[in-house]
Write a protein that binds this DNA or RNA. Structure first.
Lengths: 112, 112
DNA sequence: CGTATCGGTAAGTCATCGCTTACGGTAAGT
DNA sequence: ACTTACCGTAAGCGATGACTTACCGATACG
C-alpha cells in the first residue's frame, strides 16, 4: 500500500490538520486559509502542496485566486486502512481480555 | 484535542505501522516483533515506547519477556476524529461537485 | 550461584521537515 | 500600459526524528 503512506504522513502535522479543518467548512482560497494561522502564507502553500500530493485536497483556478477543496479520496484510503485494521485488532483485544480475566480469577501454575 | 495528536504522529512512521500490523494478529513479545523487520531490536523498543505513549498499544510483563498488545483506545480516538471530519468534508465535496457540474453544463458569463 | 536471554536506555550521527524571507509570474482593476 | 493583489517556488536555517552501537538491570536456567 504505497498510496496511503503519504496521507498518513500528511495529517501527522498539526498545521496541516488545521488546514484540513478549515477546508471542511467549504472551499477556501489560499489567503483565507492562511489568515489566522500562526504561520506565513508561503508555508501554507507548501502544506497545501503536500496535502494535494497525498490526495487529501484538490485545487481549482478562480481568476487570480486558487481555491482548495477537500478530496475525499485520500480520506477514504485512510479510513479503509484503519477499518481493516480495526476489526482484527478488536478481536485480538477481546481474546486478550478474556485470557487476562481467566488469570485474574485465581489460577496459578507452579509456585505457591 | 491534544490527545489524538500523538496517535497521528505515531502512525505516520511506516515502521511503526508495520509493528501495528504484526500486533493485529495478536499479542507479541518484542523479539518476535523485531524479527523480520528491517531495523534493529532497540529501534523497535523505541517505536513501541512511542506507540504506548500515544495510547495505541499496551504492555504486560510475562517472565523475562514483555508482551505488547493493541490498545483500541488510541485507534478509537483517531477514528472519531476522521469520522467527525468525514461527514462535513463529504457534504462540502458534494456541494462543490454540484457547483462544478452547473458550470460544466455550458454556462458562460461575460466574455464569448 | 554463575550464565544466558530478554529488553529498555544512553549517546551520537545523518537525514528530513517545517519555517522564514525573497523573488517571479499571472490575472484583475484603473 | 501601470499598478495591485494573489500565490507558487527557491534558498537557507534550526529543530526534530529514526537509526545505530554500547551498556545495564532483571528474570529464567543449569
Amino acid at each position: 500500500m504505497p498510496y496511503g503512506t503519504a496521507a498518513f504522513a500528511a495529517i501527522a502535522d498539526p498545521t496541516r490538520r488545521q488546514v484540513m479543518e478549515r477546508l471542511a467548512d467549504g472551499p477556501r482560497a489560499v489567503g483565507e486559509i492562511a489568515e489566522g494561522l500562526p504561520v506565513s502564507r508561503p508555508a501554507v502553500s507548501q502544506h497545501l502542496k503536500v496535502l494535494k500530493e497525498a490526495g487529501l485536497v484538490s485545487d481549482r483556478q478562480d481568476g487570480a485566486r486558487r481555491i482548495y477543496s477537500i478530496d475525499p479520496k485520500g480520506l477514504g484510503a485512510m479510513r479503509a486502512w484503519l477499518d481493516r485494521f480495526w476489526d482484527t485488532a478488536l478481536a485480538a483485544y477481546a481474546a486478550e481480555v478474556e485470557r487476562t480475566k481467566v488469570n485474574d480469577s485465581g489460577e496459578e501454575e507452579a509456585e505457591p
